[in-house]
């Protein structure tokens, strides 16, 4: 036993002598993750406790109803129920309209016969992704203003009445979805275009010999080639069905459309950070995180059942 023990110890010492600097480097990001990602998780218990400003989360007294008092309160809160409904509605519309958009654009770009023009189109289409939601909201406000905006001025000249794009709840929902597409459709094609380059060109040569037309090429070669990518992104989108962006609804909303623009993240901001109801909003945040994980796991399992790779 002894020789191997020494050998092992010597190899450990050698290993550490060789690689100690790696651990030193890694210690900084690991400390970051512990402090800024894992320690906040210990604060989650506030959801089950009565918040008190003078006590640490460990010392706070438990909330009523076996600790679920604030979850029950959340589901009795009309503002929260509206936020839940709005989150689901906006994410569902994003998925329904926004998810296929980059696939269609990628197919379109793939069929574009002029390479230099294709590159130019791509450059222009990626650009909105780099604009903040505040800027996009600013652009939208100027462009879609009821009387002075370019779009409504043009509609007026065509004899169509002004459309309240940002000032009426129903119109706002679609403006919200459209602006999301406007910002991200080009950017999201990148992944699909990369996947398209992996399709074996021999398939197209074979189909040409068989006399396939453009639609048949798309349907039988291009789309099946995109299938794994589409599924992976679909899983991620489904996992995000209850997640809520903050920047986008916050920047685009205005008092006239609060009934549809208040999503969960804005509810948490208003009730938690501005309203100081920490237990209630921590409970809401926990509910949201847990549902997101469940959706993600479920979507991943479903994809695997259909014979796709999944995300893990």
């Amino acid at each position: 036993m002894k020789p191997t023990f020494f050998l092992k110890r010597r190899s450990t010492i050698n290993y550490l002598r060789k690689y100690w600097s790696l651990y030193l480097m890694l210690s900084i990001p690991i400390a970051y993750f512990i402090v800024f990602r894992y320690i906040p998780m210990t604060y989650i218990q506030i959801a089950f406790k009565r918040y008190s400003i003078v006590q640490s989360p460990w010392e706070m007294p438990w909330a009523g109803n076996n600790g679920f008092e604030y979850f029950i309160k959340a589901f009795q809160n009309l503002d929260f129920l509206y936020a839940l409904k709005n989150t689901l509605l906006l994410n569902f519309l994003d998925l329904l309209i926004g998810f296929p958009a980059p696939i269609i654009l990628a197919l379109l770009l793939n069929e574009l016969a002029f390479p230099r023009f294709k590159r130019f189109t791509q450059s222009v289409a990626y650009m909105p992704h780099f604009l903040s939601w505040i800027i996009i909201a600013g652009l939208a406000k100027q462009l879609l203003a009821p009387t002075t905006g370019l779009i409504n001025v043009a509609l007026n000249r065509l004899g169509l009445g002004p459309i309240p794009f940002l000032n009426d709840p129903t119109h706002w929902v679609f403006t919200y979805v459209f602006l999301g597409i406007w910002r991200n459709v080009g950017w999201n094609t990148i992944i699909y275009l990369a996947a398209l380059t992996n399709i074996n060109p021999e398939l197209y040569e074979a189909s040409a010999i068989d006399g396939a037309n453009r639609w048949q090429n798309i349907w039988y070669i291009t789309l099946p080639g995109l299938r794994p990518t589409i599924f992976t992104l679909l899983i991620l989108s489904l996992g995000n069905i209850l997640s809520s962006e903050f920047d986008r609804p916050f920047a685009l909303s205005n008092p006239l459309v609060n009934s549809v623009s208040n999503v969960i993240s804005i509810f948490v901001y208003r009730y938690g950070i501005r309203g100081l109801q920490f237990s209630l909003t921590t409970a809401v945040g926990l509910f949201q995180s847990v549902v997101c994980v469940i959706f993600l796991v479920a979507a991943n399992a479903l994809a695997k059942k259909f014979g796709e790779r999944g995300i893990w």
Partner: peptide, 11 residues
């Protein structure tokens, strides 16, 4: 999995 806005705020 993220703790959420409020735990981060309190931290």
């Amino acid at each position: 999995f993220s703790a959420g806005t409020i735990p981060h705020y309190l931290l």
